Simulated scan of single mutants.
Amino acid sequence: MKVLTPSRWSEFVAQTDALQGWAFRGHVDASWPLVPSLTRRLQLFSPDPRIWPLREGRAMRVFRRKAHIHLQDRSALDDDLRCLALMQHHGAATRLLDFTKSPFVAAFFALESASSDVAVFALNTPALWHRAPDFNTTLTRSRIDPRLPGNFERYFLGNKLPLLWYGEPSEMDSRLIAQSGLFVIPGLLDQPLDVILDNYGGSQDLLVKFVLPLSMRDEAMRALYRMNVTYATLFPDLDGLARSVSYELEAIWERLVEDYERAQPANPPNSS
């Protein structure tokens, strides 16, 4: 995995502009490994990887048995990828890794709540479109497509194959559309994505990690705000609007202070 360390926002913009067609993911801590939320959950509470497939399969069955109560159309539950996307959307730990086609969206998620250096990962999806892992060159993206019935259980749920698939579910929700989102699905939960990609060989860079210093945050967040990349646009609902207010507290505070000071009388009356 190549690691780049731009020092200014404009440098990051130029570097990612050269990665046309790639997918991006932001991490609020540059030290975090590139693993899904399900991995972190299982490592904490189920340290034996041998039973991870059983636990993941049970979680999906439980969700399917009960989620229909809250759905007007339960057809999403019959499609493995749509079911996982629905689980992820509502806060469940899954093996899906959220990526976006926009480096700016990824940078926003990395920087918005940052208190240390952050990371934006870039995945070379054009190079992976027709690629298969070296250990089995028949396992192309189209063959392992989890949107096809039975493929999620066949290639992913067993947690045995060091491969990945990326793409979108057959039907996308409003948040996924607003974020230009897609999913990356690893075949192994106990290895980070960069290690899994080592199985694909070749001379091309398949994964690039941009480490963005905390000192870049103010400049970057102002630029993203002007681009209308905010929680309000990325989560087009009341939750997103409410979360977007957090940045309003810092983004316009200096101007508010200036307006307040100008509004004060030159010689305030004696309060005594």
Rank of each mutant, 00 (worst) to 15 (best):
R262S: 12
Q204V: 13
N136G: 07
R64P: 09
V208I: 15
M60Y: 01
F63D: 03
T140P: 07
G21F: 01
L86D: 01
T140F: 06
A59D: 14
Y155M: 10
M87A: 10
A251M: 06
L34A: 12
P213Q: 05
A114M: 03
S10A: 14
L206W: 12
V3Q: 15
P133C: 03
V62H: 08
D29V: 11
I144P: 09
H90K: 02
N159H: 11
P49A: 08
L224I: 05
M216I: 02
S246K: 14
E254V: 00
P6G: 03
I144T: 13
H27C: 09
A76N: 06
L84K: 01
I69S: 13
N159E: 15
L182K: 02
D29C: 13
D239M: 08
T125K: 04
G26L: 12
R55E: 15
Q264W: 02
G201P: 12
R55G: 02
L214Q: 04
I185Y: 02
P126C: 09
Q264N: 06
N124A: 13
R50K: 14
R255E: 09
E56V: 08
A67E: 06
L189V: 04
Y200N: 11
E153T: 12
G167C: 10
S246M: 08
H27G: 12
G21P: 10
S10D: 12
V35A: 11
H90W: 15
L206D: 13
K160S: 15
V105N: 06
L128H: 05
R226P: 02
F121W: 15
T138M: 05
L44F: 09
T140D: 02
S142E: 14
R41A: 15
N199A: 15
W9T: 06
Y155S: 11
L161Q: 14
R65A: 15
R64L: 09
M227K: 08
V118N: 07
P36M: 09
D194N: 13
L54T: 04
L193D: 01
Q43I: 03
E258N: 03
L38G: 05
R143F: 10
R50L: 15
R141N: 04
S115L: 01
Q204F: 09
Y225V: 04
D117Y: 07
H27D: 12
A110P: 05
A76I: 07
S7L: 14
D218E: 13
